[in-house]
Design a protein around this nucleic acid. Structure first.
Length: 248
DNA sequence: TACCCCATACCGAACCACTC
DNA sequence: GAGTGGTTCGGTATGGGGTA
C-alpha cells in the first residue's frame, strides 16, 4: 500500500486520507468547508490548533472546525494517521447514519486488511457522532471587509490579484488589510489564496484534467510552481495524488 | 513529468509615527 | 492606549531557464 491513500466521493463531500508510516508535516492551513476528524493509528503528532500545542498519541482523535487554522508536525518521528473530511453541506443535508455508512464503506477494507482496529473504527464513529450532534461549532468573527475578501479568495482563487487590489476593493489600506486578515482568518491573504488554489486543483485532478492544464486553470504560473505548492500542502506531488485516489 | 537553479519582484513582520 | 498608515528589510514566491 502507498504511504498516502485518498478515498473520496465524487462531490468531495466525504474524504478519507490514510497516511501510513510517514513523517509528512502539514504547514499552517485551514479547511474552508470541511470538518476534519483525525485519529492517530500509530506514533504521535504535534497539533497546533487555536494557538494551543497538543500532542496527539495513538488512539487519540481531534476535530478541526471549518476555517480553524492548524498545523501538524511530525516531531516524534514516523506516524500513521487517518483523517476524515466531512463537508459542511453534507452535515446540513444528511444524517449521522449516512456518514457512518460511507465510513464503513471506506474503512471496512482497511479494517479487513488489518490497517486499523475495530476500536479505532469505533473512535472515528463516535467523533462523527459528536459532529452531527452539534458539539463542534465553527466560530465566525469576521468584519464585513475581511469576510468579503475571504469569500472572493475562496470562490475565485485562480484570479491573479495583488494584495493592493484586494485591500482597495474593501476600502482599507493594504497594511491594515494584511493584519486584519491574518488576525481573523489565521493565514495571510496570499497563503489563503494558494491553499484554495490547491483545493481547486485537487477537485480538477479528480475530473481527469491533465496536470499542466490544472496548474494554469488554478492561477499558477506553470506546472513547476504548482508542483512545489501542491507538495508543500499535501506532502505528495500531483501525480502521486492522482495515483493514490480511490473514488467511492 | 518531476525536479533544480537563480535573479528579481513581491509579501509580510516589525517597527515607528500620527490621530483620536 | 487603541487604531491605523507608512517604511524598512529579510524571506520567499515568481519567472524563466535548465536537466533527467
Amino acid at each position: 500500500m502507498k504511504k498516502i491513500k485518498y478515498f473520496c466521493s465524487k462531490s468531495c463531500q466525504v474524504e478519507l486520507v490514510y497516511c501510513k508510516d510517514t513523517k509528512i508535516a502539514y504547514p499552517e492551513h485551514n479547511h474552508v468547508s470541511h470538518y476534519i476528524i483525525g485519529l492517530v493509528i500509530n506514533g504521535k503528532i504535534q497539533l497546533k490548533n487555536a494557538n494551543q500545542l497538543k500532542i496527539i498519541s495513538k488512539n487519540d482523535f481531534f476535530i478541526i472546525s471549518p476555517y480553524a487554522t492548524h498545523r501538524i508536525e511530525s516531531i516524534f518521528g514516523m506516524y500513521t494517521m487517518i483523517t476524515v473530511c466531512i463537508g459542511t453541506d453534507f452535515v446540513k443535508e444528511y444524517d449521522v447514519k449516512s456518514a457512518l455508512t460511507i465510513l464503513q464503506k471506506i474503512a471496512g477494507p482497511l479494517h479487513a486488511n488489518g490497517l486499523i482496529t475495530y476500536e479505532q473504527l469505533a473512535i472515528i464513529s463516535s467523533a462523527i457522532d459528536m459532529l452531527f450532534l452539534g458539539v463542534v461549532n465553527p466560530e465566525e468573527n469576521l468584519s464585513e471587509e475581511i469576510s468579503a475578501a475571504r469569500n472572493y479568495l475562496e470562490q475565485a482563487p485562480e484570479n491573479i490579484v495583488s494584495i493592493e487590489q484586494l485591500s482597495q476593493s474593501v476600502f482599507i489600506s493594504k497594511y491594515h488589510f494584511i493584519r486584519e486578515f491574518k488576525k481573523s482568518v489565521g493565514l495571510t491573504p496570499h497563503h489563503f489564496q494558494i491553499q484554495n488554489r490547491i483545493r481547486k486543483a485537487q477537485y480538477l485532478l479528480l475530473q481527469n484534467k491533465n496536470i499542466a492544464e490544472v496548474a494554469l486553470n488554478t492561477g499558477f504560473y506553470d506546472q513547476s510552481h504548482f508542483n512545489k505548492w501542491f507538495k508543500k500542502f499535501l506532502g505528495i506531488t500531483p501525480t502521486e495524488y492522482i495515483l493514490s485516489v480511490s473514488e467511492l
